[in-house]
Design a protein around this nucleic acid. Structure first.
Length: 1041
RNA sequence: GGGGAAGUGUCGGAACAGGCAGACGAGCAUGACUUAGGAUCAUGUGCCGCGAGGCGUGCGGGUUCAAGUCCCGCCUUCCCCACCA
């Protein structure tokens, strides 16, 4: 009886052996090239789940692969151990966060060990231990000395559920919810510590030194949000400032990306929180402005749920002077301007910004175009009876396009569409001549002409706006309600698409700059502003400084002391770490429990020795994970030893050898959190003289997410008839998926189909018509009525629930897949292989509990293939030998390239192919030299994937321990060449024959062989051969006529 | 509203550089061995058609001897950002 494959026995056995032999220790070895493979460290929430395996197992495979390729590989692991869940557990269950965390770590470490990964556990680092967080504090102190850490009072995001402030990056989505718990965040005005990540904004935009996914680079780029433009100084009109105001008080600095539109700035808008609002608001406007500010503040606290973003705002009564033309423009307050972006104040150019346009229309502010439309499009509506009847004929004559149509219920008008200066000019001439008394006409979009009987005006200034409007009102009193010309013409739907544009183009109505082409406009105006001292080129970023203060206990203390005499004093390097006291009360107060711990709070000032209090906020946990890749180099470096500010935070020799990380793997969800922070950290440490490189991780690859297994849909019992392979429904009965036990048996027969609905679209249902999964397509109409037993109401096909959501795994949804259970069932090796095989790694997808069986079967096949002897029933055959050898080399090559390129699924597919080839060849080659070579190759290629099984079979074949210390097989290109190749022959693009020909035959030989083929002859006969193409000898393409 | 990614059998997914679409696996079907089979082995399996043959990579065009792949226009889904000045 052959021995069965029992991973449950084999796996622990080898894990112990490897550990006893220190096989996974990674020591500095200058003789060998290093490879630092890092996978994101887990947060010890209590359970290692399938997502961890999905991230780590293929990463381990790749690390092992690199080791077999001759690299000295470091593959460490640790725990991101500070954080809220531990503290919440303390509050809810009375367990100390440290105990909760360390217990979880112990459990997770055991779980991780079952993976059989080549983790060097000697280098484990846990961020909540003093030996670790001493250095987190040390970095804070270092950044403080470098001027990168500062404290300021600012409106910050606060999560009322986590009871702490959050960094901007930790607030997600339109609903502005907390990244950890999903609660909506609120704004609070607090004094907090920030790190100047913005100092590195430009450098963080440079990805030229790293191989990171496009997606992450893009997310970071967008997050940093660099925009170039200018800062322009507007001054508050002197009469609107109190006489005793200090010089400069009235300066209103705005940031704009479009200084070329300055002449069109017809008003200004300040954010409600802008400090100058209270200074400039005229007394008679105080009440209304204050009410608006209050309401705006409240609104940001409640939640800005209103998706309908109707503009609101109030006038301050004050005016500013537009520096380019001295125009007096009103200053408004509106919440569409954010205090947090730019300067919190804008110049509004309603003609070329949709928000400003909407605001100006709503509040009756002037809109003056100052940039020509690049397409030079214009429109004009010829009002009924405003011109003689022959006007249309004149337009025809002039080649001007128009359509006649009703204008409201007034009569028939002409809708004229114009393009280009010349045509517009011709039109203006025509209409001027034709216009009847008491009428006017306008050209909208380009030119902006207002044609009256006696003159043609252009909408080119605030003054002309008023004058044109006045004339129009005179001619046609119904327009009297309008406050601006633009408001008047918005009532005409025909003009809708030419009223405003935001494109770059030639400047108009801009005094000396009129005529400046769009490409030069921004830079020309910026230079001019600079020269006149009213503005300068400026870069603005969306990125804001990293708020690192957290009002929680379970984090690294911020090493700062507040002394009534000396002020803010950092704790001396030598006194670090500031230890977290164990005996604190965990009460959800909204303030750090440390604040109520007298022993912690009260201290002496390091500077004057007098009584002082400690900072009680702790650091964001992302601080600790920003440098963990270096912590692994020499965990808890110099613990217990006091160190000064010039110390190295890790062993310089280890750093010199291992750093930086060569390959980093993990989830993409940290694109603008951890992955941005750690880059910042590395750059800051470089500037501190600690690191000598710019980027922490050379190569980054993100795995996808494993989602829950799709759940069942409703069951349908369908009557109808077959139409080919599909079934046309005439009557449908639906059974809810909730009443599974009452479902009828799946059926697929003449006239009836029954089963669960897996998918649905407008015209069909996909019904599972057998237990095992056979699918039938049922053709339906979406509004077709269905019977629902026990329900009075009739539903329709559109109501049928199908397959149900593919969702993230979560305990509450009861769709989690436990790796522990799978390891017990199939073994770690099978799970590792399946996680590689089941999905494109970088994409992920829903779990499929059935197809892991396929991988298990494969491993069993390998097992019997190598453990059972063979009778050698088939004769030795040189051709098939060669074929096996060829497959072997092809598989070596493919697997090597696939593992290198993170294409894990195809690597497994190729290994399966080699297995299949061996199965086929076994009866003839078993026991031969070739057999041994092929089996050895298979095992070596398998070693990174299924390390335990490979080691077991390796030792059973009597090969020297350990397989993991063997060299990766090499392939021979010469072996990849086949003796004969099958060449497809296409006639007019369709494959009509395949010819077998000696490999390497020249083009002429292939061509004539193809033309001689009888099948080809059939298609070529009687036709004229136009062309024969033989690209790279791969195929023959014949074109006939 | 802006930006990005992706649409291939029943399913997960292959396809180098424009060159035989569907590798590998799941599922399904048939058969073998079995007391039995959710084990194992073998064979088949894109769709339509009895057949010759035709049709097929979200839809519509185009380039080419040849298009999943390149170009133009659309549709759908997912993700990110969002009154960003």
């Amino acid at each position: 009886m052959p021995e069965l494959y029992t991973p449950q026995e084999i796996e622990p056995k080898w894990q112990q052996r490897w550990e006893a032999d220190g096989l996974h220790r990674s020591l500095v070895d200058p003789e060998r090239p290093k490879f630092y493979a890092l996978t994101m460290l887990p947060y010890p929430s209590g359970d290692i789940h399938i997502g961890h395996w999905y991230a780590m197992a293929p990463s381990d495979v790749r690390a092992r692969f690199k080791r077999m390729q001759g690299y000295n590989v470091l593959f460490p692991m640790g725990f991101d151990a500070f954080g809220l869940p531990a503290e919440n557990a303390a509050i809810q269950r009375g367990i100390h966060p440290k105990e909760w965390t360390l217990n979880n770590i112990e459990r997770e470490r055991q779980q991780l060990r079952t993976m059989g990964a080549m983790i060097d556990w000697e280098r484990e680092a846990i961020s909540c231990l003093p030996g670790y967080y001493r250095w987190s504090e040390w970095f804070f102190r270092k950044f403080y000395d470098m001027g990168l850490a500062y404290r300021k009072q600012a409106p910050v995001d606060y999560c009322p559920s986590c009871k702490t402030t959050l960094a901007r990056e930790q607030v997600v989505g339109e609903e502005r919810i907390c990244e950890r718990c999903g609660s909506p965040v609120i704004k609070k005005d607090l004094e907090q510590w920030f790190w100047k990540i913005t100092n590195y904004a430009d450098e963080l935009l440079d990805f030229s030194k790293i191989d990171w996914p496009e997606r992450i680079r893009l997310l970071q780029t967008n997050w940093i949000g660099r925009s170039e433009g200018a800062e322009v100084v507007f001054v508050v009109a002197p009469e609107d400032l109190s006489a005793d105001a200090a010089p400069g008080t009235g300066d209103l600095v705005v940031f704009t990306t479009r200084p070329d539109t300055l002449w069109g700035a017809t008003f200004m808008v300040l954010a409600p929180e802008h400090p100058l609002v209270n200074v400039i608001t005229k007394p008679e406007f105080h009440e209304i402005v204050h009410a608006y500010q209050f309401q705006a503040a409240r609104q940001s606290e409640i939640e800005r749920l209103s998706t309908e973003k109707e503009k609101t705002g109030v006038f301050t009564g004050a005016y500013a002077i537009n520096p380019v033309n001295g125009a007096r423009i009103p200053i408004w307050v509106a919440d569409y301007v954010m205090m947090g972006y730019g300067t919190g104040a804008i110049m509004a150019v309603p003609a070329h910004d949709d928000r400003d346009f909407a605001f100006a229309i709503k509040f009756g502010l002037s809109i003056i175009p100052v940039i020509e439309r690049p397409d030079l499009k214009a429109k004009s509506l010829v009002w009924p009876d405003s011109v003689p009847d022959d006007f249309a004929a004149k337009l025809d004559e002039a080649g001007i396009a128009y359509t006649a149509g009703a204008v409201g219920n007034v009569g028939e008008g002409l809708y004229v569409t114009l393009q280009g200066e010349a045509e517009i000019g011709r039109y203006v001439e025509l209409i001027s001549a034709a216009l009847r008394p008491g009428n006017w006409s306008e050209v909208v979009g380009t030119g902006w002409y207002f044609i009256f009987q006696d003159e043609v005006r252009q909408l080119d200034s605030v003054a002309s706006d008023a004058e044109i409007l006045a004339r129009c009102k005179e001619l046609y009193p119904p327009v009297s309600d309008n406050r601006t010309v633009m408001e008047m013409i918005t009532h005409c739907g025909f003009y809708e698409d030419v009223l405003f544009h935001a494109e770059h183009g030639t400047m108009i109505n801009s005094e000396g700059f009129t005529g400046t082409p769009g490409e030069e406009a921004v830079s020309a105006v910026t230079a001019w502003l600079d020269q006149r001292g009213v503005g300068e080129a400026a870069v603005n970023y969306r990125l804001r400084d990293w708020l690192v203060s957290r009002q929680r206990y379970w984090g690294a203390p911020i090493p700062i002391v507040y002394c009534p005499v000396c002020g803010t004093v950092p704790v001396p390097y030598e006194e670090l770490p500031v230890l977290l006291p164990d005996d604190v009360d965990f009460m959800p107060t909204g303030e750090s429990p440390l604040r109520y711990h007298e022993g912690f709070l009260n201290t002496t000032c390091p500077q004057c020795g007098g009584p002082a209090i400690r900072e009680t906020d702790t650091m964001d946990t992302f601080v600790c994970s920003s440098w963990y890749q270096y912590a692994y180099l020499s965990p808890y470096y110099r613990e217990g030893e006091p160190v000064n500010g010039d110390a190295m935070p890790w062993d310089p020799a280890e750093q010199a050898y291992w750093a930086p990380v060569d390959t980093y793997t993990g989830g993409a969800e940290h694109a603008v959190l951890h992955l941005l922070y750690t880059r910042f950290f590395t750059k800051a440490l470089r500037d501190a003289g600690i690191l000598d490189f710019d980027e922490p991780m050379r190569q980054l690859r993100n795995q996808g997410v494993i989602l829950g297994e799709p759940r069942s849909g409703d069951c349908v019992d369908v009557r109808g008839s077959w139409e080919g392979s599909a079934f046309r429904a005439t009557a449908i009965t639906v059974y809810s998926f909730q009443d599974r036990d009452t479902w009828p048996e799946p059926v697929r027969e003449e006239g009836r189909v029954c089963g669960e609905v897996l998918d649905r679209d407008e015209v069909s249902l996909k019904v599972r018509t057998s237990e095992s999964g056979a699918l039938t397509v049922v053709l339906v109409n979406e509004d077709m009525p269905v019977e629902i037993p026990g329900k009075e109401v009739q539903g329709t096909v559109g109501d049928i629930l199908y397959h149900l959501d593919v969702e993230k795994m979560s305990k509450s949804k009861k769709n989690v897949v436990s790796p522990d259970v799978l390891v017990a069932q199939h073994g770690a090796d099978a799970l590792r292989a399946y996680l590689m095989f089941g999905w494109r790694w970088e994409q992920g997808g829903p779990w499929d509990s059935r197809s892991i069986e396929g991988v298990t079967r494969w491993l069993n096949r390998i097992w019997t293939l190598l453990t059972e002897s063979s009778q050698n029933t088939e004769p030795v055959d040189a051709v098939s030998d060669r074929e096996l050898r060829r497959t072997m080399h092809y598989v070596i090559k493919s697997v090597t390239e696939d593992l290198e390129g993170f294409s894990f699924n195809t690597a497994i597919a190729r290994l399966m192919e080699l297995t299949n080839a061996l199965s086929k060849a076994k009866a003839a080659t078993w026991g031969s030299e070739l057999w041994d070579e092929a089996v050895t190759t298979l095992l070596l290629l398998l070693a990174p994937v299924v390390p335990h099984m490979a080691e077991e079979l390796w030792s059973r074949l009597g090969k020297p321990y350990s397989i993991h210390q063997q060299a990766w097989p090499a392939w021979d290109e010469a072996m990849l060449v086949e003796d004969t190749v099958e060449v497809p022959v296409q006639v007019n693009g369709k494959v009509r024959a395949r010819i077998t020909i000696a490999a390497g035959a020249d083009e002429g030989a292939i061509r004539s062989a193809a033309l001689e083929d009888p099948n080809v002859q059939r298609y070529v006969e009687g036709k004229q051969i136009v062309k024969v193409i033989v690209p790279r000898g791969q195929l023959v393409s014949i074109v006939v006529k």
